[in-house]
Amino acid sequence: MATSTNSKARLATVWLGGCAGCHMSLLDLDERIVDLLALVDLVYSPVADIKKFPEGVDVTLVEGACCNSDNIHMAREIRLKSKQVVSFGDCAITGNVPGMRNRLKVENILSEVYADGPGPAPPAQGGLPVLLAKVLPLHQVIPVDVYLPGCPPSPERIWLAVTAMLKGEPVELPAEMRTLG
């Protein structure tokens, strides 16, 4: 894979609307984390303290669904700055658990959660991202290159997919490793 100056691929991981379980699973690579870090520079991640999504990323793993305006904004930025985008786990792929609110009206959810019961939603305060009417899978917001299903995807799936991508190979998971759920 074409890489940046120090010949290591630039990997980013992003946490949108999800439970961080996919990132936990990533960390569950255990000692293979070391092997992975030998192959890549982790240029952006919730586990690293980097404030701004950098330019020229080779692979970005996106965990979570798009639930609010900030998620949409972030997704678009990722797409602009990444060569390959991976829908990392079920939430990014289907909406999954965050998407279970999609059958309900967003105003009702807000008032149910933050006020007391059905009624008008509390007024939005300046600067807070706006909840979307429907939680969206990532590929409905930006084009996605690779889907890595699972809730969470097992470390084996992650390892297979990421190493294949780093070698510039197509990601071909066996049937039992591409189940949703």
Partner: peptide
């Protein structure tokens, strides 16, 4: 779905 290689749904979810 897994067997047929369906890892994402191209249509809008109807919810």
């Amino acid at each position: 779905a897994a067997k047929l290689g369906v890892t994402s749904v191209r249509y809008d979810y109807m919810c």
